[in-house]
């Protein structure tokens, strides 16, 4: 069983990243389940998707302490999901910071010790800078696929399988851009 959480901010595209992962797992013959949030919770708030695949999947939600990978598309959001990580799990964090409302209004400040703290507690912590990859891919909207590309390094699926899944889920005119974004993510460095 593989458990993956995608965390982020409404609009960052965590649902598409989950869909591609589910498609590739389904094509390999795995049972898959996923859970996502819609509606009011999406309006610029914290969002997440849980994806699980394996021989037989019951719960669409991942139990705390059992996620193999927590992929956060925004730096702060990793803190909200870190309790889901299994002791042997890995986190992948985009270093982009999006100020939440209390930071915008000056009521609170954006924590500046996240990377340091996570690294002191999690054996496998990958912090990635996606700015270059997004510039090269030609669209900021490709962040979800760039992050998925980075995650793909740890998973069993081949380049061809990922390509097939992306092609089946992305609108035709965006396929090339997303395939490029995926490749850039797969080759991205982490700190």
């Amino acid at each position: 069983m593989v458990n993956v959480i995608f965390a982020g901010v409404g609009g960052q595209g965590v649902i598409l990243a989950s869909k591609v992962l589910m498609e590739v797992a389904k094509d390999r013959g795995y049972d898959v389940k996923e859970s996502e949030v819609h509606g009011m919770a999406q309006r610029g708030g914290s969002v997440e998707c849980n994806v699980r695949y394996g021989e037989k999947v019951y719960s669409p939600l991942i139990e705390k302490g059992t996620a193999d990978y927590v992929v956060s598309l925004e730096e702060l959001e990793i803190l909200r999901k870190i309790d889901y990580l299994s002791p042997d799990g890995a986190v992948i964090v985009n270093r982009e910071k999006i100020d939440p409302a209390p930071v915008q209004t000056g009521a609170m400040s954006y924590p500046n010790d996240i990377q340091e703290w996570i690294k002191s507690r999690v054996k496998q912590a990958h912090f990635v800078d996606t700015v270059g990859a997004l510039k090269e891919a030609g669209s900021k909207k490709a962040l979800n696929i760039v992050m998925l590309g980075f995650l793909s390094r740890f998973l069993e699926f081949t380049d061809e399988q990922w390509e097939k899944a992306i092609k089946s889920l992305v609108k035709e005119k965006f396929v090339e851009m997303n395939l490029k974004a995926f490749k850039l993510g797969r080759e991205m460095k982490s700190s």
Binding site: R43, G45, L76, L79, P100, V103
Partner: peptide, 9 residues
């Protein structure tokens, strides 16, 4: 460190 919430807006 206090974690700022991110309510929908």
């Amino acid at each position: 460190t206090p974690i700022p919430p991110r309510p929908p807006a």
